[in-house]
């Protein structure tokens, strides 16, 4: 397609300058700063001491960093295998236009407009061992022996951290639904004539059409999992015994509590590399799709 060129070409560039300036200020400069200062030992106030890759050798030999990396990868897995599939199932169901689907769509989205801070806080009380809803519910249905201190237990704390994220699929569902709304009704009608039932229509028409939305959701939720900070910070403070400390909280702790700015930034760079890796994979998959079309 022919885009407008002419003499405006040069002036068009100037329209992008504010955005470029902000990108340089908020991404390029911090990135360079991060890379350079991660080579120093620094407590944030005193003199910086050059240690080369010392901070990186430190984190790669640090058991807590390994744990944090594993926790972050578990978060990514919860997005891929639980959150996104749940959103997909709900969108396929809503796409059959059951009674009240508009109402459900609106209600499912409510948790997405409420701050993660408030949600974490609320779930902290849901898991509360004495007055919490979860234990109360278990007692009420006669499963009192299952009650426990959900957030105080290394075997349950991490999953309990992730439950609100996994459940609140409003945005993910809407992205899927939007993609589904682009499927032409004739496809479904043709399938119906061929005798396909609801499940077959989902499997052979809807799900293949959802690929772009899946990639969008992997991108959005993956980015969320890499940066999520509120859930572990507020619900468990990273504990018990660091079982819920993810990379975001590790970076925060190294800076704010341990005053090891260099180590914090080295961990930051690892997080960025994970982000770049994730986004590159998604982008490549998107490109591949475009070529095929």
């Amino acid at each position: 397609m022919q885009r407008v060129s002419s003499k405006r070409g040069s002036s068009a560039f100037w329209y992008t300058v504010p955005a470029l300036a902000m990108t340089v200020a908020f991404f390029v400069v911090p990135l360079v700063y991060l890379i350079v200062v991660s080579l120093y030992k620094w407590n944030g106030l005193g003199a910086m001491k050059f240690v080369g890759l010392g901070n990186y050798t430190y984190i790669f030999n640090n058991a807590n960093f390994h744990k944090a990396l594993r926790v972050t990868l578990t978060w990514l897995a919860s997005a891929l295998f639980l959150h996104i599939p749940l959103g997909m199932v709900l969108s396929l169901m809503l796409n059959r236009r059951p009674k009240g689907w508009r109402f459900l769509r609106v209600m499912y989205f409510i948790p997405n407009v409420i701050s993660t801070t408030a949600v974490s806080f609320m779930w902290y009380f849901i898991y509360h061992s004495d007055m919490g809803m979860l234990n109360g519910l278990l007692r009420a249905v006669g499963l009192g022996h299952l009650t426990r201190s959900w957030l105080g237990n290394t075997s349950t704390a991490l999953f309990c951290n992730q439950v609100p994220f996994i459940l609140y699929v409003g945005l993910t569902t809407i992205i899927f639904l939007t993609q589904l709304s682009t499927v032409s009704p004739e496809l479904y009608e043709a399938a119906e004539i061929d005798g396909a039932d609801g499940l077959r229509k989902d499997l052979y028409i809807s799900i293949p059409m959802l690929k772009p939305a899946i990639l969008t959701n992997v991108m959005l939720n993956g980015a969320f999992c890499l940066r999520t900070f509120e859930y572990p910070f507020l619900m468990t403070s990273g504990g018990p015994s660091n079982s819920t400390t993810n990379l975001a909280l590790y970076i925060y702790r190294e800076m704010m509590s341990a005053n090891r700015y260099g180590v914090s930034m080295a961990a930051g760079l690892v997080t960025i590399l994970l982000g770049v890796l994730l986004m590159t994979i998604v982008t490549l998959l998107q490109k591949e799709r475009k070529v095929k079309l």
Binding site: F27, V29, P30, L31, Y33, L34, V37, G44, A223, L226, R227, F229, A248, I251, Y252, M255, Y261, S264, M265, A267, G268, L269, T271, I272, L274, G275, V276, M279, T280
Partner: peptide, 10 residues
């Protein structure tokens, strides 16, 4: 591509 929480210190 950048999870900005990595930029805590910068």
């Amino acid at each position: 591509f950048i999870p900005t929480n990595a930029f805590l210190v910068p």
